[in-house]
C-alpha cells in the first residue's frame, strides 16, 4: 500500500485532544503547526472566531499507509471535538531519513 501524507486542520483548542487520539491508533510522528485562517468560510468557526473574523487553526500532518486512513478518520470523528475539522490526503512520491 502506498504511503500518504494525511493532513488535518482543526481548531487550536482541539489540537491536544486530536493528537492524543491519533497517537493511540497510529505510531507515526505527528507534526503540529499553528495557523491563522482569514477567509469568508465561517461555517467551521467558533463564536469568538466569527467576532474577529479570524480562525485560529492547527494543522496536524502524519505519514500513513492508505489503509490506515479509515481508522484515523473514525478516530477523529469519535473524538470529543468542539469544532469541525477538514482533512485531506496527498500521495507521497518518496520520503526518507538521513542521519
Amino acid at each position: 500500500m502506498p504511503d500518504l501524507l494525511f493532513t488535518l486542520h482543526c481548531a487550536t483548542r482541539d489540537t491536544e485532544l486530536l493528537v492524543d487520539a491519533i497517537r493511540a491508533v497510529s505510531p507515526t510522528p505527528i507534526h503540529v503547526r499553528g495557523e491563522a485562517v482569514r477567509g469568508r468560510d465561517f461555517g467551521d468557526a467558533g463564536t469568538a472566531e466569527r467576532v474577529s473574523g479570524e480562525l485560529k487553526r492547527s494543522t496536524l500532518e502524519l505519514i500513513v499507509s492508505a489503509d490506515a486512513v479509515p481508522d484515523l478518520l473514525r478516530t477523529v470523528k469519535d473524538a470529543r471535538r468542539d469544532l469541525p475539522v477538514r482533512w485531506r490526503t496527498t500521495p507521497l512520491l518518496d520520503h526518507g531519513r538521513i542521519a
Partner: peptide, 11 residues
Amino acid sequence: EDTPRLNHVFR
C-alpha cells in the same frame, strides 16, 4: 456578504 454578523458588529 457572507461575513458573520458578529464580525460586522465587532468591526
